[in-house]
Write a protein that binds this DNA or RNA. Sequence first.
RNA 1: GUGGGUGUGGCCUAGCGGUUAGGGCGUCAGGUUGUGGCCCUGAAGAUCGGGGGUUCGAAUCCCCUCACCCACCCCA
Length: 420
Amino acid sequence: MAHHQAPRGMNDTLPQDAALWRHIRDTAERVARLFDYRQITTPIVEDARVFLRTVGDESDIVQKEMYVFEDRGGDRLALRPEGTAAICRAYLEHGMGSWPQPVRLFYIGPYFRYDRPQAGRYRQLWQFGAEAIGSDSPATDAELIELQHALYEALGLTGLVLRVNSIGTAESRARYVQALREYFRPLLPSLSKDSQRRFETNILRILDSKEEQDREAVADAPKIPDFLDEADTAHFGQVQQHLRDAGIAYQVDPYIVRGLDYYSRTVWEFEPAEAGGQSTVGAGGRYDGLMELLGGPPTPGVGFATGIERIALNLKARGLGPEASQPVDVVTVPLGEAGASACIRVARDLRAAGITVRASIPGRSMKAALRGASAVDAAYAVIIGDREAAEGVAQVKPLRGDGEQRTVALEELAAAIQAG
RNA sequence: GUGGGUGUGGCCUAGCGGUUAGGGCGUCAGGUUGUGGCCCUGAAGAUCGGGGGUUCGAAUCCCCUCACCCACCCCA
């Protein structure tokens, strides 16, 4: 057993998973491009205040999940726990307010949360996300949802359940939270322990409590739609109209609450129909107050993030995704010193022609080299011993079918192999 | 952070107080002189997650610890 292991909750991505990851990333970037979103890459580390001021002091992310450290100069830095706040920081820093609005951006990269790992939940996780900053139009909310939906469809991850809600502006939400406080306070002793804690930390969370004990109290609790003002309601109605126009199925779920303080109005989640555990594949929302928390001018924004690991998990569970094995065109089989020298030159020329060449290690037996070639399912063995080297030829042996071995001049090798 | 489960060579796993800790896959090498896939043979590779303890004796029992898994919390 090795003495060192990857840090808890952080994983190596091995070659057999590389193709799947690449497929997900390529698809995400392609779909984002189709909507004219452009990539932004921000540092993995930010001034801790970027997150402390935006995500919410009471949120779990700030309370227990953020990796914070001091650098040698005494600055407090944080491993980024999420993408939106950093992108808003970049928006302000680079004066994107003077670009054509809304600014449409996407990103992909690793994020960090010091949380207890379990299936689909890791301390280093990869997220793909997109943001449209600078417009409060419900069309942008719908556009982000449509982009996210298109991504899942392109990956074959069909049938995810989309649930949407509006939690209103900060003002209407404050009124709602106040009403919830008044409603739950007398019921507090009857609530579950978790919900008693939520009453203090994040009262909205009581609404999606899984405790049987809380069910009755939650059922009769005030509902957010009753607290939305006219503009909120109209906004949410138009988001839904745009979703219908786009032909995207959704459910309105008044109990959806997002974990971060900065959300306002539209919030949504995509989940597999067979939900359970850490099942949310991706989620998003509008964050109209966020820029001001960072010291910028009032600037509306909306975006989503989706977990690459969770997408990969779902694709694997459904047997989707690209072939894990990568084809090898040619394995060289060097025999003797002159053969080994010739093989190096031949491999170089074949690769220059775009042919994948796996070089056998010289000094092993021919049998071993050919066994190795079979093991990687190579199409051809190119055998060069001292005899072939002296004559400037190679033996080309097809390994997959029942084709005949041929003697081919070295300068014609690439063409012969490409011709099949 | 809370509760529960698991931990034997690279992978899967048998063994559950006294075995040289066994097997399968994989790796490497051979099966005569330069030809693979199947088959056969052999080799390398395990202080049985780590540390204490009980015992004449521990992979097997107890305690602690670490990691992973599952559920909760929370979230992507």
